[in-house]
């Protein structure tokens, strides 16, 4: 499909959904209008609410908090994942001992940790950052570990024959290989950092997009809930687009990077 045709279809679908939503909440097609509005709000109300979020400027503080938590979770989780991934990949004995523990920790649904983190780190941003870190860490860790392990033995032998010592092997072979694996999971790990932040806010906080949605929900303010969701999804799409830009730049050497870049 051509790019413009594709875009036309996508915009068409969005308009269709909004029209159906509008018709069902304005005319008594399947149920009472008042009831439908209580459960689903209306597109016009939501648009007005989103506009008011930005017009009054109240949204900026929440957006900033959520983005800060996301960024911190991503940064700390990535650094920890890279360091420990490298270390375990070069220390197979330690890796063998830790293997079941790593699998157990990774299998744990992270939501159950949220209350513990609130207890440990309080209700401000750090409990949300901690939740995000536990999600990001494992993705980065597994990818870096794999990246170091899966270096082609021929490339490694060749690098040795070129006279590289351990430090140079790290810099020219292991590190770029691990980074390429890490970047290939960038979309997932950035996404999970945001999930950690929002879920944490949702469970207990005084600011952030998750808090905003939760507040609206507790007063049955469906317009507020949907408006919060709209802002959140636009942010996610923007971040994803940014990650794609970074990825295309950093993984220029990889044939696949350009293939799924757009």
């Amino acid at each position: 499909m051509k790019r413009t045709t594709l875009l036309a279809w996508q915009i068409g679908l969005a308009i269709a959904i909004i029209v159906v939503w509008h018709v069902l909440t304005t005319y008594p097609v399947i149920s009472d209008v008042k009831q439908a509005r209580f459960f689903f709000s209306t597109p016009v109300d939501v648009a007005v609410r989103v506009w008011r979020f930005f017009a009054t400027g109240m949204i900026w503080r929440h957006l900033w908090i959520t983005l800060l938590e996301t960024l911190l979770a991503f940064g700390i989780g990535s650094i920890a994942g890279i360091v420990i991934g490298f270390w375990l990949a070069r220390q197979p004995r330690v890796a063998a001992v830790l293997d079941p523990f790593v699998k157990m920790a990774n299998a744990l649904p992270r939501v159950v940790l949220a209350p513990i983190f609130m207890l440990w780190f309080g209700l401000d941003i750090w409990s949300k950052v901690a939740l995000g870190v536990t999600l990001v860490f494992f993705i980065v860790f597994f990818n870096v570990y794999q990246g170091v392990k899966e270096v082609s033995p021929v490339i490694l032998s060749n690098a040795r024959m070129l006279g590289m010592n351990e430090r140079q092997l790290f810099r020219h072979v292991y590190w770029p290989s691990a980074l390429s694996w890490m970047f290939s999971s960038l979309h997932t790990s950035v996404g999970f950092a945001l999930v950690g932040a929002v879920v944490g806010e949702y469970l207990g906080s005084a600011a952030g997009l998750g808090y905003l949605i939760h507040e609206a929900e507790s007063t049955f303010d469906m317009t507020g809930v949907v408006a919060g969701m709209v802002v959140l999804s636009v942010v996610v799409v923007l971040i994803d687009w940014l990650v794609t830009l970074i990825e295309v730049r950093l993984l220029a050497w990889r044939p696949e990077a350009t293939a799924h870049g757009a």
Binding site: S152, V154, N158, M161, P176, S177
Partner: peptide, 14 residues
């Protein structure tokens, strides 16, 4: 010694 391998041995990221 210099070694020329049968398989691809170039670093793909360079």
């Amino acid at each position: 010694a210099g070694y020329l391998f049968q398989a691809d041995a170039l670093m793909p990221w360079k």
